[in-house]
């Protein structure tokens, strides 16, 4: 998928959690949201993007993506 679209969507999620005063809670919030609602292929693509630098992603989103699990094999 277009990585720009995934970055926009991840940033939208991170933006919502920005108002959370506790940083750790905010990171968990973004991570859990991605894990609960995103197809693993999309998560994998975003995770790879972060590994490659993740330019354009909000810091909160990057941090959450780093913590996010993605199943190894996606059939």
């Amino acid at each position: 998928m277009h990585i720009e679209r995934l970055v926009t969507m991840a940033n939208d999620i991170a933006t919502y959690f920005t108002s959370e005063p506790d940083h750790a809670t905010a990171v968990t919030g973004v991570r859990d949201h991605l894990t609960r609602f995103w197809d693993p292929v999309m998560r994998r693509q975003l995770k790879d993007f972060v590994t490659d630098g993740g330019e354009g992603l909000l810091p909160l989103a990057s941090e959450a993506v780093k913590q996010m699990n993605v199943p190894a094999v996606v059939g």
């Binding site: 998928m1 277009h2 609960r36 609602f37 995103w38 197809d39 693993p40 199943p71 996606v74």
Partner: peptide
Amino acid sequence: EPGLRIPNMFEAAM
């Protein structure tokens, strides 16, 4: 694991 939402399906089709 969650599947694709409608707009994700469109992206994946492209």
